[in-house]
Design a protein around this nucleic acid. Structure first.
Length: 775
DNA sequence: TACGGAAGTCTTTTT
DNA sequence: GACTTCCGTA
């Protein structure tokens, strides 16, 4: 029955069978961390612990789901089903559904995602008449997030002169007021943002000892995965819950801490043994995932960091091949190289697409690669970026559904009260917001009695009637929800509100795709209803569906249909592994990111990020960088990443170093790079190599020195960077064919004067105009 | 009030 | 490039 223990090495087994007392497992990359966690939980259950008493906090929903499946295989579905397993946010949202009323929130509180929060803050700043260039929405919210993650409430802020002074010194003296107004608006709307889910959990556990006691008794055994990425708020929740039984097992790797920007505090893991003096520490150092080359290179990288726990990751695996480092000329060239290498891996190594991943530092890098993969006919899936639920048409529809559950949700109400258009304008809405603030009444409640208030607010008869109609429509949906299933109501909402109609009227490709998306969300609601009915856990609730929507990420969606190459940011790749991994964009200011070059801590986090990226690879890793890249609508020269120089050359295989950028040509010869076996391979001696690396190509004229006789643009035909000069014939999407008459303006922002055959002469900014060059 | 076009602004990573 | 904002027009 406990045969699984034989599948573990010594430290792994110890981590599994040490079930009582605090335990810290430092798990190096690829050291079988997930295996330890699953078997540990299975072991607890086999020992007779009730799954209801086990809480396992994972970093992603996907990790939770996969782990649950694996546990099911050992202990059976029935037992595994009752485990409390999920992300901090989803587990504590679930608990707050029960406990939030103690804090004055409705149990059907709405969860605001980042977009909602930004929209609320934008309105708060406008209502307070503050300068939006000084009080930038994202910055203000970032600051508030810091407060919340450190449990600094509005009151605590007001009582902390250092914070007030710091904000004053940063030219934002009214931060405290903004914080208060934002929190009040959320509270009034019955809404919590992501940080609130943790903050309010802390609050309820602190203020209500009996609640704390209840959950301490419930969660006798607690496991936390990726402990190095917990923030202070999460840390305190865990600490509070575990303080009674102290059966707390944290698993993590300080070398893989990559979420400091979100408040993660690496100290949480570094000082675990101070928090729990009796804690046992186990370190898993044998890597089962990667080749010696990959492990060796990764170790070299991470050794450049100062702040870390002592450990040595090693492997008994084969040596493996050296890591190719390809120097591309443009981002398009880089993408083409990756596509061609994927093709080769398939031919030579019989790898499936699904065994290959392309990792990048920023989502924006996916575009060029997608294009190259499409050209080669390689199927792929891009994870992250704009998720399905973030799309406007989906958010609009969801906003209606949110209103049915929580009519005080002001963000949702303002979003849809005039969409589709029903003649309710900004002026009217401003009056309503002001009145709502003054009367301390939600807009919805105010509108229920609009006939009696309209005159006082200066709202005319027809408008008042429209407002009333809207409220009555929402109320009719609410009534319908009482005796119809969620799917039926959703369908009715989509039709009655006119959402389907407006989308149908738009027959552009984008419009059609928006309609399809609406269709898809309706399908997924139906899927949810069916699934919940099967699980037989009462009637499927709309609020349950909405919670899934708010807390699920793109990576969680399991439409793993077919054999596709995975594309994602390095952050998203955490916890995953692939036989072959490409890490692209290994350039200064990109990886490491130009935003993180200021302090050693920031740079070390970038380095850990690279460490994470490289250790995703089992057999094949490849690195690429480009000497020029299309960024911010401009071509930007770039230098190879310092991380490349940090790796010992014995692990690397430099490619394409002596191919230069053709100067004074109208463009790159695309065919030159199509067959990569033809590209001269230059294996330089060490000295030359380093030199080449820091100055990899002939010095090109800086953009500022360039006369306005020519301009580099990206040709819409083929994505090539070409030089545009007077006399060229170009095609514009709207204006048609035309001849370039001249170029003028600032070198960074060149205007082309183009004489179009039908549209006449136009001046177009090259940073924006989409031109195809004909000759 | 709605819409479209053009200019302006911002680009890191995510629950 | 993507998104927002501003402005003119219907």
């Amino acid at each position: 029955m406990m045969k699984y223990l034989d599948e573990l090495n010594e430290p792994q087994r110890e981590a599994v069978i040490t079930t009582e007392g605090p335990l810290m497992v430092i798990a190096g990359a690829g050291s079988g961390k997930t295996r330890v966690l699953t078997y540990r939980i299975a072991h607890l259950i086999n020992k007779g612990v009730d799954p209801f008493n086990i809480l396992a906090l994972t970093f992603t929903n996907k990790a939770a789901r996969e782990m649950k499946e694996r546990i099911s295989k050992v202990v059976g579905d029935q037992e595994a089903k009752n485990l409390w397993m999920g992300t901090f946010h989803s587990i504590f949202a679930r608990i707050l559904r029960v406990e939030a009323p103690l804090l004055g929130y409705p149990s059907d509180f709405t969860i605001y995602d980042t977009q909602d929060a930004q929209s609320v803050m934008k309105k708060v700043i406008e209502e307070m008449n503050l300068d939006k260039d000084i009080y930038k929405v994202k910055q203000v919210l970032g600051r508030i997030s810091q407060f919340k993650n450190n449990l600094i409430t509005v009151r605590a802020y007001q009582n902390t002169p250092e914070l007030i002074e710091a904000d004053a010194a940063a030219m934002r003296p009214r931060m405290g007021e903004l914080y208060r107004a934002y929190v009040e608006k959320c509270f009034k709307s019955g809404a919590m943002d992501f940080d609130d889910l943790l903050l309010r959990t802390n609050e309820v556990l602190t203020r209500f000892p009996e609640v704390l006691h209840k959950y301490q008794e419930r969660f006798k055994y607690i496991l936390v995965d990726e402990y190095q990425d917990t923030n202070h708020s999460q840390y305190l929740i865990v600490k509070a819950l575990a303080s009674r039984y102290e059966n707390l097992c944290v698993v993590g790797d300080d070398a893989q801490s990559i979420y400091a920007f979100r408040g993660a505090n690496i100290r949480n893991i570094l000082s675990f043994q101070q928090d729990y003096p009796d804690a046992k520490a186990i370190s898993l150092e044998q890597n089962y995932r990667s080749t010696k080359t990959i492990v060796g290179a990764a170790n070299v990288i991470i050794s450049h960091n100062k702040e870390q726990l002592d450990k040595t990751v090693w492997t008994a695996n084969e040596q493996g091949t050296t890591i190719p480092v390809y120097r591309a000329l443009t981002d398009a060239d880089e993408a083409r190289y990756v596509a061609s290498q994927i093709f080769e891996l398939q031919m030579n190594e019989q790898l499936k697409n699904s065994e290959i991943a392309i990792l990048y530092r920023t989502n924006a890098q996916s575009r060029a690669i997608e294009e190259a993969l499409r050209k080669r006919g390689i199927p792929y899936r891009v994870y992250g970026g704009m998720s399905f639920y973030q799309r406007k048409e989906i958010k609009d529809f969801i906003a209606y559904l949110r209103l049915l559950i929580n009519q005080n949700d002001e963000e949702a109400l303002l979003r849809v009260i005039n969409y589709p258009a029903r003649g309710i304008g900004q002026t009217t809405l401003n009056k309503l917001v002001v009145a709502s603030n003054q009367m301390d009444k939600s807009i919805f409640n105010l509108l229920e009695e609009i006939p009696q208030y309209a005159g006082k607010l200066g709202i005319n008869g027809p408008t008042s009637a429209k407002l009333y109609d809207f409220i009555m429509m929402i109320k009719s949906f609410q009534v319908m929800l009482q005796n119809h299933d969620v799917y039926e109501v959703s369908m009715h909402v989509a039709k009655t509100t006119g959402l389907i109609k407006v989308l149908k009227e738009d027959d552009t490709p984008e419009g059609i795709s928006r309609l399809e998306n609406l269709q898809e969300i309706l399908n997924s609601i139906q899927g949810y209803v069916d699934e919940q009915k099967q699980l037989d856990e009462g009637d499927p609730s709309l609020s349950g569906f909405l919670e899934n929507v708010a807390l699920s990420t793109d990576a969680d969606n399991e439409d793993d249909d077919g054999d596709k190459v995975s594309m994602m940011t390095v952050h998203l790749a955490k916890g995953l592994e692939f036989p072959a991994v490409f890490i692209v964009g290994m350039e200064e200011n990109l990886f490491p990111s130009m935003m993180n070059l200021n302090t050693r801590q920031e740079l070390e986090e970038e380095r850990r990020l690279f460490y994470v990226a490289l250790t995703r690879a089992e057999k094949f890793a490849q690195l690429t960088y480009s000497v020029s890249r299309f960024r911010w609508g401009k071509i930007v020269d770039s230098e190879p990443s310092r991380f490349l120089e940090e790796i010992d050359d014995k692990y690397l295989d430099w490619k394409n170093l002596n191919v230069g950028m053709p100067l004074n040509r109208s463009g790159l010869d695309a065919n030159l790079f199509d067959d990569f076996s033809q590209v001269p391979r230059f294996e330089p001696k060490k000295k030359v190599e380093k030199k080449t690396l820091s100055r990899p190509e002939p010095v090109k004229p800086k953009p500022g020195l360039k006369p306005i006789g020519e301009a580099k643009i990206t040709n819409q035909n083929n994505g090539e960077h070409v030089n545009l000069v007077a006399g060229k014939t170009v095609v514009h999407d709207r204006f048609g064919k035309g001849k370039v008459v001249g170029l003028e303006g600032d070198p960074n922002n060149i205007k082309a004067i183009i004489q179009f055959e039908t549209a006449g002469e136009k001046k177009l900014l090259l940073n924006f105009a989409k031109l195809r060059v004909l000759d």
